[in-house]
Design a protein around this nucleic acid. Structure first.
Length: 421
RNA sequence: GUGGAUGUAGCUCAGCUGGCAGAGCACCAGGUUGUGGCCCUGGGUGUCGCGGGUUCGAUCCCCGUCAUCCACCCCA
């Protein structure tokens, strides 16, 4: 059983039938929705220079500090498996060297974080993300959230809640931070140990601490927006108003801050009740990233595919157990018929007719059982006698009726109407 | 990185105080020498996660280890 030889590494999962049919459905829906909004797919490397992530996500963030799979490649370069999608996409767009404003791209693929696995959290997980580049604009932010909301709904997820908040313009960040720290310093001893540390490193994160003591302190604080510029406040208000106009349901959550350094202005996440402790099915926000002398602005989001699937299952959507059933199943009696059947299915498959047969040498009874399980409507049986006569015994699996049909007739019907009626 | 739970057949799981390893489903074969489902009969398909220890004897008790799940942390 549990041999290390064939079990995947911790937190890595094999995605197999029938669940894979749900993945395919989500991917199809994604391509469709993204095309509606004018987003084009981009595929970037899974492995990047470590500095790409450090630059974009932030040196001191947890993701960079303790969650990246990093190593040295054979050329001595420090490289990392991507822990999220935005950094690599921004790097790629920079490499293309064009004016990035107005670029709209989406991606889907595996991401890696060296965390302890739990419900809805894997070391290799998958994200569907979208990035809309251009200068800060409430319209861009609202459109992006509308896209995310549309995508989730199109996947059949109805019970999502979108929580939004603002971090204010990046230029406001120092004064917000200072105000927050000075407000908290006097009560520091009542905060949990993590938060006492955060007071120096990432004070914003104290806002989303779940410890009751910290929560109480945070509740007594004035809203973060009080310390932002009026322009930042207006930006947030405008964004909220646009969301209402667009009919995207949301609620403002003053505790939402998110852990990546590149965010400014609007940030949000979508949570679903079917998920357990890790209940964020998607998250996003506006960002500003520096690559060398280049500054990239945009807004984007990422959906956790594993979590989306959990949410879908929580909505009663299940994988298609049957899969694509073949039209016909061929049963052979004897080695000559086996070879003739193999030739026949190849012809018909190349003509676009899905058909099946057993190639492992089972008994007729065993072949019939497989035919039944495959869901094929008709079973075509032949042995020496039928081979000589150029016929099949054609069995209708719903009625159980059995009749002799000429190979030519079967082929004509199958290839023209796809039925043997 | 920290904490808790779990690990027995392909799957879901029983297994008392330590005494020959079990059930349901699935699977295979036969009943039907060329016909699925339903039915009947037969078949256990196993390194009781792994390695030590205690014991006359360990799936059971002890230690270690690995894996999984859940939670913290953090995030999708």
């Amino acid at each position: 059983m549990g041999s290390e030889l064939w079990s995947p590494l911790p937190g890595m999962s094999d995605i197999v039938w029938p669940e894979v049919s749900l993945w395919q459905k989500v991917e199809d829906v994604t391509r469709w929705i993204m095309s509606l909004y004018g987003f084009r797919e981009i595929r970037t490397p899974i492995l990047e220079r470590t500095t790409v992530f450090i630059r974009a996500i932030g040196e001191g963030t947890d993701v960079v500090q303790k969650e990246m799979f990093t190593f040295e490649d054979r050329g001595g370069r420090a490289v990392a498996l991507r822990p999220e999608g935005t950094a690599g996409v921004m790097r790629a767009l920079c490499a293309m060297g064009q004016d990035l404003a107005g670029s709209r791209v989406y991606y889907m693929g595996p991401m890696f974080r060296a965390e302890r696995p739990q419900a809805g959290r894997r070391r290799q997980f998958h994200q569907i993300g979208a990035e809309s580049l251009g200068p800060a604009s409430p319209h861009a932010d609202a459109e992006c959230m509308a896209l995310m909301s549309h995508l989730l709904a199109a996947c059949g997820v109805r019970r999502v809640k979108i929580r939004i908040h603002t971090r204010g313009a990046m230029a406001d960040a120092p004064q917000v931070r200072e105000a927050l720290v000075s407000n908290l310093r006097s009560v520091a001893p009542t905060l949990c140990l993590d938060c006492q540390r955060r007071l120096e490193s990432h004070p914003l994160r104290i806002l989303d601490c779940k410890q009751p003591g910290c929560r109480r302190v945070v509740e007594s604080l004035p809203p973060l927006t009080d310390w932002m510029s009026s322009a930042s406040r207006e930006y947030f208000e405008a964004t909220c108003n646009l969301l209402e106009t667009l009919g995207v349901p949301f609620e403002v959550d003053r505790h939402l801050v998110r852990g990546l350094d590149y965010y400014e202005h609007t940030i949000w996440e979508a949570v679903h009740p079917a998920l357990g402790a890790q209940d964020a099915v998607a998250g996003g926000g506006r960002y500003r990233i520096q690559f060398g002398d280049r500054t990239i602005e945009g807004v984007g989001f990422a959906v956790g595919v594993e979590r989306l699937l959990l949410a879908m299952q929580g909505e009663g959507i299940s994988a298609d157990e049957r899969g694509g059933a073949p039209k016909v199943w061929l049963v052979a009696v004897g080695p000559d018929a086996l070879q003739a059947n193999l030739v026949a299915v190849q012809r018909w498959r190349q003509a676009g007719v899905p058909c099946g047969m057993d190639v492992t040498g089972r008994s007729v009874k065993g072949q019939m059982r497989l035919a039944d399980r495959s869901g094929a409507r008709w079973v075509l049986v032949r042995g020496e006698e039928e081979l000589q006569a150029g016929t099949f015994r054609c069995k209708d699996m719903t009625s159980g009726q059995d009749r002799t049909m000429a190979v030519e007739e079967i082929e004509r019907k199958l290839l023209s109407s796809g039925t043997l009626e």
